[in-house]
């Protein structure tokens, strides 16, 4: 076969695959065969991408194209001279085909994804190309994709403050713990630790919704000063907070209101390489309220021990907390 014939063959097969993947009972076997076909020859992949771009172009404008077709058939209901009509249309087609080349390939451009990771005791400020700024807390992992139609961030683990540059045409979506936080331009903090999600808004407005379409009704709008907490079991709590308290980690402080010592220690263990262990589990339950200045673990613990019935002893990993 000539290379053109090869390409025609690949285009035909790509069409067959796209049609087959629309089946109501598409399954694992289809997937594996499709996978093998894609890998079998580079022209298969290229042909499939072309067909897919066309297929999705129709998806985006399905309603408009359907309406145009309906209008056209109303204008010319079974006329006896449709040939001439379409010959006229045909004159425009060479132009049309040439234009299509510039209209469609944008759908295929794969935007790049950048990943940022911080370790214990590390903070990182990331300036994104769209003008947004992300401050990454310690022990966090985040990836950013600036796509044509959206700015997409995945916070796999950890916490970050987002200062989002306004761009109404490109929403800023943060995916974390099976939820999507959607904004246009605002400042907010997202925390995803041990499967628990917290979103705190300082400025503007954001929307949080579960990723699963079936649970879309559980979407929430948050405005400045609001915090949403989603527990691992999906339970949602909304409260009013001073956002600056949540944002304080960026300037080396942690603010707590009635939070158990165990949580405070878990936070401190992300901020310092030297690790703190709680020797007696009952100590972990003590509620903590106050501001902790993140200088070094020894000073932090000596200040805490002034308020709490605890003392610290050095351990092989850092510090051990014991009852006084």
């Amino acid at each position: 076969m000539t290379s053109i014939a090869h390409e025609e063959q690949a285009i035909a097969e790509a069409g067959a695959w796209l049609a087959r993947l629309q089946r109501g009972d598409v399954g694992e076997a289809d997937g594996l065969e499709f996978d093998a076909w894609l890998d079998a020859a580079p022209q298969n992949r290229a042909a499939y991408k072309k067909s897919l771009a066309v297929w999705q172009a129709f998806e985006v404008s399905a309603e408009q194209v359907a309406a145009e077709l309906a209008a056209a058939s109303r204008r010319a209901p079974m006329r006896s001279a449709p040939t001439r009509r379409w010959m006229v249309a045909g004159g425009g087609l060479a132009v049309a085909a040439a234009l299509a080349v510039t209209v469609l390939p944008g759908l295929l451009a794969q935007p790049e994804t950048q990943t940022y990771v911080t370790g214990k005791g590390q903070h990182q400020r990331v300036a994104l190309a769209d003008g947004s700024v992300v401050d990454l807390n310690a022990e966090s992992r985040l990836s950013v994709t600036l796509a044509r139609s959206e700015r997409r961030v995945v916070l796999d683990d950890g916490e970050a403050i987002f200062d989002v540059a306004h761009d109404a045409r490109r929403p800023f979506n943060v995916a974390a713990a099976n939820h999507v936080v959607r904004v246009v331009g605002t400042q907010f903090d997202v925390r995803n630790r041990q499967g628990e999600l917290t979103v705190t808004v300082a400025r503007g407005k954001v929307q949080v919704r579960p990723v699963a379409a079936a649970a879309a009704w559980r979407a929430y709008s948050l405005t400045a000063g609001q915090r949403m907490e989603v527990a691992q079991n999906g339970a949602v709590a909304l409260r009013t907070v001073d956002p600056q308290e949540t944002f304080s980690w960026r300037v080396g402080r942690l603010v707590y209101r009635e939070q158990p010592l165990a949580e405070v220690v878990a936070d401190l263990n992300r901020q310092f390489v030297e690790q703190i262990e709680i020797g007696d589990p009952a100590l972990g339950e003590i509620p903590i309220t106050g501001v902790i200045i993140l200088d070094d673990p020894k000073s932090v613990m000596s200040r805490l021990s002034l308020m709490l019935p605890v003392r610290t002893v050095p351990s092989d990993r850092g510090l051990l907390l014991l009852r006084k």
């Binding site: 985006v60 404008s61 044509r148 904004v183 954001v206």
Partner: peptide, 30 residues
Amino acid sequence: HGGEDVVDEPPADEVVAGKQQVRLLTEAVA
């Protein structure tokens, strides 16, 4: 929530395709 829409624009992938492209696609189907 009784609030307004958060996103004041439709999601970008739902932005209506340009008239030009709609015409091309319509002709191709016809």
